[in-house]
Design a protein around this nucleic acid. Structure first.
Lengths: 204, 204
DNA sequence: TGCACGATATATCGATTCGATATATCGTAT
DNA sequence: ATACGATATATCGAATCGATATATCGTGCA
């Protein structure tokens, strides 16, 4: 999931870790407070797998020039580092998405096997990269999921429940309905933009 | 967090793992799909620390009779197990909360340092165990948190954002407002039940 | 000039949680 | 009998979290 989020942001332009975290936190907000302890390992995983690559931050045309910044930028800093046992880098590392990364991005974005709350939010952020039909399918999938949940929520509890528990359950049901209305509106907007409606036909 | 949830349920009556998971899943629902991979280790942690203890399921008076079920219930099953290298138990293990556990439960329930979405939901489930003043403080804390978030959500985005991102942010703000209304009502109900309002007075 | 301090930035550790998988037991319908 | 689905526990590797450490940058101010 984190990998999808990172790839999605890097698909726009090269960024460094701290920036990625800021963007994701302000957009996903309380739903997913990404931590550095998961972000940096994720970046290393992606780099190892060749989905992203470190780039010179000053490269203005993203994707074009991969200047592998193996050399150093500041001699003083470098000298200081050489004095220490493990020369940990603490200056910016900018990453750009690679062609392999774009393929992976599409795979993760269209993967239907993981569809929890988080996954939906992240995928929605980047569903502009999907073609209209796939995007509609994605939204419909979410709608079905929420409808399903609402059915489960509506059925009265089998056992006696405490006052606060009841309130929580009632609020959850209302929230689900709220989410459902939202998705329905997103779908309506999609259909408006795409009246080309061959309803589930295989005439792609 | 899981520990609080487990202790809260066991405070009502002894239960076994599978049951705990069912209860929590149906109540916390999509917000927190507890997995066995976290539940069973949590049970072992709690048992090691003495917060819970294994009990005979047939014990009708919880907390009174701790019959350590070291002995076996079925000879045939036991015989079958002895034939295997590692006689893993797969029959029910019921646990009951101990006095140590009740202390820990209260500590976790009143701990203000972790207050994310999950923590709020879990604590709400068990806030009936708090005294009215503490419960009100808990709800007020949540209200402040949501109000804070709403302020952050309301401020217009500094940068250009995509259509779907905007929709997500708008929906989030509405959801937060929805949650806030809910909490406000819970608080109102509390004050109704507790008009005894000596505002922060120590006259318990 | 220098230097204190908060914001920016990366890294890492231990613990918790997740998701998948394996396997045993129980109830019941055929 | 026995096949099957629901109940039940256990475990592994990987992802994530939360805390902590440390370096660098920008800015105000003495």
């Amino acid at each position: 999931m984190l990998e999808l989020a990172v790839l999605g942001l890097l698909a726009e332009q090269p960024r460094h870790g701290y920036d990625l975290k800021k963007r994701l936190s302000e957009t996903l907000g309380p739903l997913w407070g990404i931590s550095f302890g998961s972000l940096y390992p994720a970046l290393r995983r992606l780099e190892r797998s060749g989905a992203i690559a470190e780039v010179d931050e000053n490269a203005t045309t993203p994707g074009a020039s991969f200047v592998p910044t193996g050399s150093l930028k500041g001699d003083l800093a470098a000298a200081r580092m050489r004095l220490r046992p493990r020369p940990t880098r603490r200056t910016r590392r900018a990453y750009a998405i690679t062609d392999r990364g774009r393929v992976l991005f599409t795979e993760l974005l269209t993967d239907e096997s993981d569809d929890d709350e988080r996954a939906f939010a992240v995928k929605l952020l980047f569903c502009g990269h999907l073609d209209p039909a796939a995007r509609l399918a994605f939204l419909e999938r979410r709608r079905a999921q929420l409808t399903q949940r609402l059915v489960a929520d509506r059925k009265p509890a089998t056992r006696t429940i405490d006052r606060y528990t009841r309130s929580l359950l009632e609020h959850r049901a209302r929230s689900t309905q709220h989410d459902l209305d939202w998705i329905a509106e997103l779908i309506a907007q999609e259909r408006e933009d795409q009246p080309d409606d061959r309803s589930q036909g295989a005439t792609a």
